[in-house]
Nucleic acid binder design. Structure first.
Lengths: 469, 469
DNA sequence: CGATTTGTGTGTATACATTTG
DNA sequence: TCAAATGTATACACACAAATC
């Protein structure tokens, strides 16, 4: 049931009329899915308009609407009012980024780890915890959202970023990704829409897709999402929430300035959006970037779920994040925490608490900042043209503009050369016109030497493929 | 916009016509939600039929269909073709069961813990792990689905239950509840339906509600769900999956016999259902119950997600469960694991692996079985009329029939007397006619003495409120 | 800026399947 | 066994909103 490749000037997709069966809308949806999955329709191909296809198939155009809707919900296509319906890029394949499936030789500049070479620093904290007399009390079902002194340790940690809250507003969960999954499940319904940056955290994109939550891209500048643009989308799109990473947007490294936070807060308040603030990078920003004052949570304490993971600053293998929320979200969030996790390992939470309260956390952060500074300097040496760009000075990753000639195939090319990086298409929401980039992780190579080797390979390959550009 | 209480013989619900605004279907849905949440409509009240209400409001009846559908998806009402539409019991309130929110004096026979008095037995395993030279490698982002030797430890553990699979079919996740959340997210879409026992695991009910997955109750007998009844529901209801706890259904303690497993497998295969097999209780059943042979997974390896948590047999505070699945589910499940957890704490998984491989797990299980036997004997002494009932002989909880005069208010009454138990309404799917029960946890009182005290209070109160019954 | 194209939201008609008596 | 009651599935008409030219 594929399109006829010889008829080009007319519709890009012509399902076989004779194969249509009742119910028509399912039949059409299946045919379209088949042809997209089978590779007969390339990414971003414009499909026939609803009315065109309806005429062609002798159906009412709203029947086509329905067929298209099914495919849209599966992520196979996307529609823009007034503009048309298009085949999604990467419809068939996942954009989930994980540490899995990488051979040992390949230098990983793709997945953003967190300078894992620091992990030895917390071994002694783990030993201290396990040596405590009350350790067996960490092995029971109690305190599903965390033990009080652990929550207080979290508040202590977050106070450095200007966050002020009560322990009863805190829940300990299993990492920031886990916190995001819980937040979507707790506070959003399938079919609702959340505003995000045009390029945003790819795991959030995937999570939203799984929950059937639509993401609406909102333009931004060097200080973050544009309040006017957000307001415009709110007026037009019936938006329920907004997702922001104020301290260092992943992947663009943009930080939201304090003034911008206030302007955004005004719009968020006006439209009563639920704000998801992933502030896991605050440790890199508070006290370092001059303009930093406080998280959005402080401006909108009743509208915000604040997420602060300890994977990046402290240790990635102990799965701990702190969630902070207003009283109005408490019941729903706690119920979702219970339904998804029952509880987070008290052992992990206890070790993280010990690292924080003993002052070790600050030492680890100091070391990671030192490594981040070295890594960023190294990057600037290899890519001096990117050195002056706006963005976070100590980010664990960089956002490198590349030639428009390169598609997302560069990933495969570079992997064959021994480095893994991720192309901007993985982070793109909607149909992007923002140019092409690579996200280059600086925190995953395991040593500055390996990072240097990786960057060298990267530069060599981009120079070559760039050609006369 | 509530109904007029003085007009009783006609429709049970009469929204105020004058308050109707466009869009009508939303307006009607909101009014209905308001009146249910406000308590104006009692549980199981029969609502006007779609056509009745449409006439009354001068709308097309399919507009009412739509309004009712919205409320149904929120779990506020349920509809039965040919029969009518009804207000859901417990529409407004949550049935999530957790360890939270219980004062210290109250004896907990509600939440099913796992004889936490055994936890001291694994402290030495935790110390052994933390003492190992490779411990810092447990603190990184690697191996999101678990380290190979940990998966092999899991397979070793599950081999005792007759499960045979390859390590690549295994993912380590953060407890069996976490596994269920991941499975729903990975393999089901909002709006799909899953067949379950008429009384089933309340946290699964909540999880399904959050994911907007409909649960269809299927009748069963002392050997588990009835295959004919399942087939009938499949024919009628467009069912996508089935959830089973073969080794010991929570809350009923029913075990699925080996013959029944084969009959169910035939139906499941015929209708291509996705089977979710929560077999965390297998350690209580394999080798103990004569009829036990193997899990459903072995009969339907390509249609089953097998979930085996270690909270009950080994330790509840270390959050580990093993998921086993066919190759066809692998990609989707692993992606969901990553999107929900990134990874499970390698420390927790390593300690559990050590407990299994060192043989300590068997000792812990022996001790828990001994305690379970004592606890069940104790229960039989206090409730001799329940002693002969079918069900698991070593279950960590019992399913106690109570007088029909008692509603779910008994929970509150008993709590005031110092014991927490859960009423069958928390476990009920659909509109139950199966009598009233209490689920009495035997594994949470922290000692047999406290359990005995709790059971005594329970018996005294049931006797009294039972009256002449 | 206004007309046109294109997708979305809402209300309706009709055929059908299940339950009940 | 059948007819009536009742919810469900499917297709369509039409008003509207956004994007484009």
């Amino acid at each position: 049931m594929s399109s006829n490749p010889f008829v080009q000037c007319s519709m890009s997709w012509k399902p076989d009329r004779s194969l249509l069966k009742r119910p028509f809308y399912l039949s059409v949806a299946r045919a379209l899915e088949h042809d997209i999955q089978g590779g007969f329709l390339a990414a971003d191909t414009r499909l026939p308009t609803q009315r065109e296809l309806a005429d062609y198939l002798n159906l009412n155009f709203t029947t086509i609407t329905r067929a298209y809707k099914i495919c849209e919900q599966k992520g196979l296509i996307y529609a823009v009012t007034g503009c048309g319906t298009f085949v999604s890029p990467g419809a068939a394949c996942s954009i989930t980024i994980s540490k899995d499936g990488l051979s040992g030789d390949c230098i990983d500049l793709g997945f953003v780890a967190s300078f894992e070479e620091c992990n030895h620093m917390i071994v002694e904290n783990a030993r201290a915890v396990i040596g405590k007399c009350y350790v067996e009390h960490l092995f029971n079902y109690h305190d599903p959202t965390g033990i009080l002194h652990q929550k207080k340790a979290g508040l202590n940690w977050m106070a450095a970023f200007g966050l002020r809250a009560e322990a009863e507003q805190v829940a300990i969960v299993s990492g920031s990704q886990n916190a995001l999954a819980i937040t979507l499940l707790a506070l959003f319904e399938p079919g609702q829409a959340i505003a995000v940056d045009g390029y945003t955290f790819s795991n959030f994109i995937e999570l939203a897709k799984m929950h059937h939550i639509q993401l609406i891209p909102v333009p931004g500048d060097n200080h973050g999402m544009l309040p006017d643009a957000l307001e415009r989308r709110c007026r037009l799109n019936n938006i329920s929430g907004v997702f922001l990473m104020p301290s260092c947007c992943n992947p663009t490294t943009v930080m939201i300035s304090d003034d911008r936070k206030k302007e955004l807060a005004a719009v968020i308040d006006k439209y009563q959006l639920i704000t998801i603030e992933d502030d896991s990078h605050a440790f890199l920003t508070a006290g370092i970037v001059e303009d930093y004052r406080q998280p959005l949570f402080q401006l909108l304490p009743e509208r915000t779920v604040y997420v602060c993971g300890t994977s990046k600053p402290i240790c990635s293998g102990l799965r701990v994040a702190f969630m902070v929320f207003g009283q109005n979200f408490k019941e729903k969030v706690c119920r979702a925490v219970f339904n998804v996790n029952v509880k987070t390992s008290s052992m992990d939470a206890e070790i993280i608490s010990d690292v924080i309260l003993s002052g070790k956390a600050l030492k680890v952060v100091e070391e990671k900042k030192r490594l981040a500074r070295c890594a960023n300097d190294l990057f600037d040496q290899y890519f001096p043209e990117a050195a002056g760009a706006a963005g976070h000075p100590l980010s664990f990753y960089r956002w490198l503009p590349i030639s428009k000639n390169l598609g997302c195939e560069v990933e495969a090319v570079l992997k064959r050369q021994g480095v893994r990086v991720f192309h901007s298409s993985r982070f793109l929401v909607g149909h992007g016109r923002g140019g092409q980039f690579l996200r280059v992780s600086l925190a995953s190579a395991n040593s500055l030497e390996r990072l240097s080797t990786g960057l060298k390979i990267l530069r060599a390959n981009l120079r070559r493929s760039r050609g006369g550009n």
